[in-house]
Design a protein around this nucleic acid. Structure first.
Lengths: 159, 159
DNA sequence: ACACGATACTTGCAATTGCAAATATTGCAA
DNA sequence: TTGCAATATTTGCAATTGCAAGTATCGTGT
């Protein structure tokens, strides 16, 4: 006599099903957990997620303009602007005037910034290893392959 | 003669490698894109991500307390509290006093709330289909299997 | 040369979020 | 029974974020 409310088993089961077996939900969960771990590890170096992404972009193309840094990534212009403010204050990057255009900044890693990157790659390597090690060896390559196909298929946006 | 700055090819290549081939980065990108799509579709119904997650939790266990709703999910107590404020204002849920404890609220979907869920499941189904359809048919089950192994392995946290 | 729309970046302000304190209630122990 | 730590939820406030407007510069057409 402890079921006064009529429940709705079909809906309830569908919700449970969705939460435990849908690709999107699982994807969210995995991404959230790896992001949390990344944030924790980055905090040791005084960095936030956005800052880290900007550093990665700059490592890949030193001397990029702020627009170029944000391009194709999930970062709005003002996010890049404010991330650079912080990174400059930490002495990890520097803005220089573009030779051709006075409204464009060319951004470079400082020596300190470059010196920091190996530790960051170390963190990424560790976390990727931790993640993949949850899969049996024979599945790891397969998972990477599927992720690659998907990320290439979904096109640009969100970094 | 257009390379005045000595660059660092090893770091640059490592950054590129990381951005394009690491599991974590690809995971982030996929999750971000599906989340963005979800947000867009939810906005049609006047819902935000948190609200949707709370509705899912309530569908799975009607009459849950606010603490129970947040439990195991990525939602802090105050997030649940404020999400319920909004959902109650929209008439989708209602807080009732618990019979045993005056400090606990039991939360229920209203008829309107229940009526909304099928469309939401429709959205989730669509998006999951869109995602999986980026993979050849023979890989779709495999991807789901790997995701399932991983989400179960990483344990609780983040929903 | 000058006007005007486009581009690159920055910033004010409002909305959102997270932490930490407040409120209300409970259970347990002295 | 009384006081005190624990639990459940709410809320004030500070930090963060996003939008939209602001500043500066550029390029193009006249």
């Amino acid at each position: 006599m402890n079921k006064p409310t009529p429940v709705h088993p079909e809906l309830r089961d569908q919700a449970h099903q969705t939460r435990t077996t849908s690709a999107g939900w699982m994807l969210q969960r995995l991404a959230c957990m790896t992001e949390t771990q990344m944030q924790t590890r980055l905090k040791v170096h005084g960095l936030k997620m956005d800052h880290f992404i900007v550093l990665m972009a700059l490592t890949e193309k030193e001397g990029a303009s702020q627009t170029e840094i944000g391009e194709g990534l999930r970062l709005a212009g003002y996010t890049v602007s404010r991330a650079l403010d912080a990174l400059e204050k930490q002495g990890l990057v520097e803005r220089k005037q573009d030779a051709q255009s006075r409204r464009t900044h060319r951004v470079f890693l400082t020596d300190d910034g470059r010196a920091l990157m190996p530790s960051i790659f170390g963190i990424i390597g560790d976390l990727n290893k931790d993640l993949l090690d949850q899969l049996p060896a024979e599945d790891q390559q397969e998972f990477l392959r599927l992720l690659t196909v998907l990320t290439q298929a979904v096109g640009s946006g969100c970094g």
